[in-house]
Simulated assay, not measured.
Amino acid sequence: MSTARTVLVIGGGAAGNAATILLRRAGIAVDLVEAKDDWNATAGSGITLQGNALRVLRELGVWERVKESGFAFDSVGITAVDGTVLHVARDVRTGGDDLPATVGMQRPRLQRILIDAVRASGARVRLGTRATEFEQDADGVTVRFTDGTEGRYDLVIAADGIGSATRAAIGITDKPEPTGMAIWRVAAPRPAGVSRTDLTYGGPAYIAGYCPTSDTTIYAYVAEANRDRATIPPETYADEMRRLASAYGGHWTDILPHITDPAQVNYTWFDRMLVEGPWHRGRVVLAGDAAHCCPPTLAQGAAMSLEDALVLAGLLTSGREWDDALLREYHERRLPRVRTVVEASVRLGRWQLDGVRDADVPGLMGRVMTMLRELP
């Protein structure tokens, strides 16, 4: 292989952006293509980043900006439907004792920080562009794009999300499947006194919660059984979320008046997927949600994607040959850890759907979080 290695990254989300930054740091030429013209710079309300995600963000060199932009905390509260605090638990610092257990952030703010880091890395970025065809041989991949151009690469990293077209194009047939639950999310001003995530289990929704995302903002969410999207016109989203949330007391009484704009309310089904077999075909390899996805019941989706990028980039910059053995090692290192997170995340939701009253939720969460303290 030529020493002037070239990589195409498909998808400008957490995994794609992180892989680009790490590979460029090692001097590898990277093209990043993203289907959205705006690079997803305004999408989403909030995101919960636990310590193992923060550990990767520190490796990317953006931790200080994340810390300044988000809201750090080390505990989670369990409340009754009326808002009474029943229990406060210390969170496991999965990124190590020198990082907070959790940082809540506005999702667009995190994306902007990663975009800036990708731009600063010197990667060539093309927005509004999709990869459509892949022709592989022993030395690399020829890729054709929607704008009529083509490029030649030593490796392609498919980080194009849960509905990955690349995954299907290279013959991996796994697809996401709904778990039976859905979530309503909205950004809102931070009520005085909200300094951690609080969760309520029960009431008209299975889970109701909120997470501070800055000194002045939060994102709030309610999870229920999924409904046929066709029966929920987008113009009613605020009304639907407000109806569910109105049963909850405490800080919810301050949040409710801000659930008014249906365009600011997001409704999403919970899905699960785990590609058990190899995550690559030839020189095209999956990362992030293209390889696995899970409900946000453990708040580990972004963390798993960031860890994928860290492990894959570490192998690619280790001086080894970029061959089948290296990509198999990437899969072998990631699969057990990701499987644990996916299965636990699905089980937590399943317990809610099935009304299991004696479920050991704290025990399951504690075991997973303790495992995540280990380096990926």
Rank of each mutant, 00 (worst) to 15 (best):
V186M: 01
T149L: 08
T213Q: 02
V9S: 06
A192T: 08
D37K: 10
G282P: 15
L256M: 10
R242F: 15
W351V: 00
I115C: 02
A120E: 00
R152N: 05
R130W: 07
D154N: 02
C294P: 03
R357S: 11
Q111V: 01
W279G: 03
V361N: 11
G11C: 15
P212L: 11
R5S: 08
G104F: 02
L312K: 03
L375V: 15
P257R: 12
R190D: 02
C211N: 08
R124K: 10
E135H: 12
I170W: 09
L49I: 15
T149Q: 10
P362H: 07
D228P: 05
L312F: 05
P362D: 08
A205P: 03
G51I: 06
A15E: 06
W351A: 01
P234A: 07
L326I: 14
T146D: 14
V9E: 07
A4Q: 04
Q352A: 14
G319F: 00
L298I: 01
T340S: 12
A159V: 12
T260Y: 11
S45C: 15
S345A: 12
F145T: 04
P376V: 10
I218M: 03
P295F: 12
G11V: 14
G16P: 02
A89R: 07
R185N: 01
A220S: 07
V125L: 08
C211P: 08
R55A: 06
W39R: 09
I172V: 12
L312D: 05
V341Q: 13
A187D: 10
R109K: 12
D31Q: 13
A15W: 09
H258M: 07
A223E: 11
R107K: 01
T236S: 03
A208F: 04
K36C: 03
V7Y: 11
D31V: 13
T236H: 03
R24M: 01
V103L: 09
H331E: 05
V92P: 06
D228R: 07
L335A: 13
T173N: 01
R333A: 11
E68Y: 00
V346W: 04
R107D: 00
R65Q: 10
G44S: 02
A169W: 03
E374D: 15
T129V: 13
A117Q: 04
V118K: 00
W252D: 13
L199Q: 13
P178L: 02
D116C: 11
E150T: 13
V81N: 00
V368K: 03
